[in-house]
Design a protein around this nucleic acid. Structure first.
Lengths: 154, 154
DNA sequence: GTAATTGCTAAACTTAACTTTAGGTCAAGG
DNA sequence: CCTTGACCTAAAGTTAAGTTTAGCAATTAC
């Protein structure tokens, strides 16, 4: 086993915990760009471990694969990403993380508050809608939940 | 418009921000149980606003509709849920929220740490895998991410 | 050198969560 | 009364994110 020829898809799968088919799919979606060896098999850079880790985490945060692809395009194609490259990526990413954490924390606190206050409502409670433009238009739990659309497929 | 005959599906849709078709779908999945008026149209209890709010929030947390259905089955069918009913539901729910918040917070802190320490790795960094059973089996970012499986559809 | 493992492609299949369509029915306002 | 907008059902379509299958090639282990 030569030391400098990159990882096989199986090795990458074992290291990341992803299925081989998922890795091929990610390549098809443009998230990673392996090269091929003499026999036509994929070979992956060690940096791809990092890329895939990033993909998995970003997915947990609710990013779609095209979105993640766009994020990753901030990284250099040819050379191995430097510390600065990843730091840049992670910075914006930390923002998203923080936002998500804030939303969930607020949600939890509001949940506590409303159970405490006895109004029970996840919907029309004054604690949830302090500015109360109520009765105006559908305000549902959206107030609590950030602004992802309710409808998804389409 | 009679005052005591429940909400129409359109009214419910406006109040929750959901699509009418989504509400029908939720009924088909057993998440809500409207009754029918003389002409065969659905009529919804005001408590269903709360149920649907709950559904939407739980979805944001990553629960599937069958899971949510199971959660909602903790609520009484016939009578309007009391404060205690909802409190019971919300309690377990708050646990999930807290767990999620903890995971994300840890992730953020680790992200900060590794950018700071210069190892850059979202994968094999000592900060991430303090117990380091490394090279053992695929440990990827899973260590960071709680334990949701990497593969989804089946 | 040969068997077992791993990898390859293309295409079809899967699942969740809905939406859209088609062809009607019901209800509310003027 | 009659029209217009809300509702109805059933069935088919959609999207994302993969997985599975089939048939074949390259690698690795013995």
């Amino acid at each position: 086993m030569a030391l400098n020829e990159g990882l096989t898809i199986g090795a990458l799968a074992r290291r990341t915990g992803l299925a081989v088919s998922a890795i091929r799919y990610y390549e098809a979606q443009g998230l990673i760009k392996p090269w091929r060896n003499g026999g036509g098999q994929r070979r992956f850079a060690r940096a791809d471990l990092r890329r895939l880790s990033f993909v998995m985490i970003a997915q947990q945060l609710g990013y779609s694969l095209p979105e993640i692809r766009a994020l990753l395009e901030g990284l250099p194609q040819g050379r191995t990403p430097t510390k600065t490259d990843w730091a840049k990526l992670s910075a914006g990413f930390r923002e998203a993380l923080n936002a998500r954490i804030d939303t969930l924390t607020q949600l939890r606190d509001n949940l506590d508050g409303c159970i405490g206050c006895g109004c029970l409502s996840l919907e029309v409670c004054a604690l949830y809608n302090p500015k109360d433009s109520a009765a105006d238009r559908g305000q549902g739990p959206r107030y609590l939940m950030g602004d992802r659309p309710a409808t998804r497929a389409g």
